Simulated scan of single mutants.
Amino acid sequence: MLSRIWILGLGLLSGACSQLTSQTSQQPAESLQYISQASSADLAAALEGQRLTLADSPWGPSVEVLVLKRYFAATGRVCLEAEIGQQLALICDYQQAGWASQRLLSQQDQ
């Protein structure tokens, strides 16, 4: 009897954890600023150290972006850490929805 309760408890806990993980791994839509298709194609091909001029972006027209780092995020997305003017930005690939800028949670001095 006790083993059945134990197994049932583990099953419920496992289900709750997987639901929590799936909810927290998605960004709220209002915190994302999507980038145009043409600029998204440029970002998809960008390499570290490359400077791009995005024709249309959340930062305005003809913005220069310096790609600082390209990496796979814990969410499974390809992301770029970029510098736009004096500001750091996080830009990630949301596959069918395209590339989007999202709010940085923290910024460390280098």
Rank of each mutant, 00 (worst) to 15 (best):
S3V: 06
A41M: 09
I7C: 11
A97H: 15
A16R: 08
G98E: 08
I91Q: 03
R51Q: 10
Q87S: 07
Q102Y: 06
L10C: 14
Q108L: 09
I35A: 10
L80H: 06
Y34V: 09
E30Q: 03
A16K: 03
T75P: 07
I91T: 08
R4K: 14
R70Y: 00
L32I: 09
R70C: 09
E83F: 02
D42G: 04
L54C: 08
T24M: 11
T53A: 06
S39F: 02
S39T: 10
P28K: 03
E30T: 01
A74Y: 00
Q19T: 11
P61W: 07
I7R: 08
G98F: 10
L88P: 08
Q33K: 14
Y94D: 10
P61H: 09
R77S: 10
K69G: 01
A44L: 02
Q26N: 13
M1P: 15
L12A: 13
S31G: 01
S3L: 11
Q86A: 13
E81R: 14
A82E: 02
G9I: 05
T21D: 13
Q37H: 09
V67F: 02
R77D: 06
R51P: 02
M1Q: 15
R4N: 06
D93F: 08
L88F: 06
L32R: 15
E48Q: 13
A89G: 08
Q96M: 04
L8I: 13
Y71H: 05
G11F: 12
L20I: 08
C79G: 00
L43F: 03
S22N: 15
G76S: 09
A100F: 05
S62P: 04
G60C: 11
L47Y: 04
L90T: 13
T21E: 14
I91F: 00
P61G: 02
A46H: 11
E48V: 10
K69S: 03
V67G: 02
D109I: 06
S106F: 10
Q95S: 09
I5D: 14
G60E: 13
Q87V: 05
S3A: 07
R4H: 04
S18Y: 06
Q27F: 03
Q96A: 14
S106N: 09
V67Y: 03
Q95H: 08
L13F: 11
T24K: 02
A16E: 07
L66Q: 14
A41V: 08
V78H: 00
W99Y: 04
Q110N: 12
P61V: 09
R4W: 01
A89Q: 03
S14F: 12
Q37Y: 01
P58T: 09
W59P: 00
M1I: 08
V78F: 00
Q27M: 11
Y34G: 02
G15R: 07
A82M: 00
L68F: 10
G49Y: 02
A89P: 05
Y94K: 05
R103D: 13
A100S: 13
R103P: 13
A16G: 09
